[in-house]
Amino acid sequence: MDASRLTAGKAAAVFDAYGTLFDVHAAVQAHAAAVGPDAPRLSEVWRNKQLEYSWITSLMGRYRSFWSMTEEALDYALAQHPGVDRGLRGQLLDSYRDLAAYPEVPGTLRRLRALGLKTAILSNGNAAMLERAVAAAGLGDHLDAVLSVDAAGVFKTAPAAYAIVLDSLGVAREAVLFCSSNRWDIAGAAAFGFSTAWVNRRGLPDEYADLPPDAVIGSLDPLA
């Protein structure tokens, strides 16, 4: 489907937060000189472990805050890179709390609302960390709702996580366009019944062939 037609007949555009609206690698990039040559790999391990912990916890039928997993994932990444000064831990976490939004995000959200769509975040992030990230990026005025999986007590890709959107925004699932940079998240949203746009910022190969996105875009610009 043409990305420009994705919003036709939709009542809401819902976005994953980390990696989609906010640059998850900006925290390490902000301290790249101090981190040293291991900076890119440290950032990748940090992100991958953060997600792994959420999936494993969900499979065990348990739940705890995404922020605690973010801290523990950084500890693992630092342990795997002993050449990086562990004294940077606090600065890296502070930078993660205040991640930069991608440049096109505010304008896209503004234009979508001008088209009459509700705009919202649905994130694995817990409420406190989302509130701070949205405020730091200045996105509050462009969003109708900031939704955390806290409300379901389970992380995406559990169906109960996506159902939060329907309960909170009062829309039918076929009226939702869900956008994420995470292909696994797109698969989960598609399985739930949302229309989807995969924001493939890094040009990654496709996967989950049985649950394809309705569109693949390199940024949010084509949406509105």
Rank of each mutant, 00 (worst) to 15 (best):
L21P: 08
W46Y: 02
A30Q: 04
Q91M: 13
P40R: 13
R201P: 09
A161P: 02
A26F: 08
H81W: 03
Q29T: 14
S43L: 08
N182A: 03
T119W: 09
E207T: 14
A34Y: 00
K10T: 11
D206V: 13
S43Q: 09
L109G: 13
G61F: 01
R110P: 00
D214K: 07
L143I: 10
V14G: 05
G90M: 08
R113M: 06
G87Y: 06
W184P: 00
D221M: 15
D2I: 13
N124A: 13
A145Q: 01
E174P: 09
Q80I: 02
R64A: 11
D98A: 15
A73D: 03
S123C: 13
E71R: 12
G36E: 01
G9R: 15
I56H: 01
V171E: 00
A145T: 08
Y162P: 00
S65Y: 03
L211K: 11
A163E: 03
L112P: 02
S68W: 07
I217F: 09
A187M: 10
A128Q: 10
K49W: 06
Y208V: 14
G19E: 05
V146M: 00
D150F: 05
N200Y: 14
R41A: 14
I56T: 08
L130R: 06
L74Q: 07
R183C: 11
L109W: 08
T20V: 05
V84K: 04
D98S: 11
S4T: 15
L51H: 04
G140F: 13
V176Q: 10
A17H: 09
V165G: 02
D214V: 13
R202A: 15
N48Q: 15
V176A: 15
A12H: 04
R173M: 06
D2P: 15
L117E: 11
A158C: 10
I164F: 02
L177R: 01
G153S: 09
R86Q: 07
G193V: 09
S58N: 03
A30Y: 03
V134T: 08
K49Q: 05
R113W: 04
K10A: 15
G83F: 03
H25L: 08
